[in-house]
Amino acid sequence: MSDQVLGDSQLQSLYQYAMVLSQHRDDAYDLLQSAIESYLVTVKRGNEVIECPLAYVRALIRNRYIDHYRYRQRWQSETFEELALYDISPINIEKLVIDANEIKDLWAQLSVEDRDILYHWAVLGYSTDEACELLEMPRGTFLSRIHRLRKRCKSINEPLSRVQE
């Protein structure tokens, strides 16, 4: 069962994911701890084969976050943007640039859904299409979110470019 124990780096990675969602250190730790407890119960029962413990616990954290905080923080399981018109012109998200000093503020201001998908893209290395599929987010909704993100990056990039000039 030693291969079922989550090591230091895995625990740090899971904690970071819990932080991405909750943006609160105590909540993140509680999420991680309860998810690991649930994971251990499943491992002990031995009824289920867990091929990738890291992904399994990450899913537990996400589900728990949605269950526990959806009413408090209004997790948008059905986004109203689907009904609105939005710009879905192609954007190369890879080319977006941001001021290193601004990312913390921007990150905190993003919705939890935005952070979730960007985490999967930037940290876990999924393509945006894969992240959409994994998180069951419609592609249109994601593009809408990226356009809004680009605008926010622009507002940072514009003064930045002026400084650089």
């Binding site: 904690y15 970071q16 932080m19 991405v20 250190r25 993140a28 998200i93 890879e94 080319k95 977006l96 640039v97 941001i98 001021d99 290193a100 000093n101 990312i103 913390k104 990150w107 960007l118 985490y119 893209w121 930037a122 940290v123 993100l149 990056c153 990039n157 930045l160 400084v163 650089q164």
Partner: peptide, 17 residues
Amino acid sequence: HTPLPLKDAIREEVTSE
């Protein structure tokens, strides 16, 4: 002002925790 690719900036922000 240090411009960073968005991806790197997010990664740094996330892993700082």
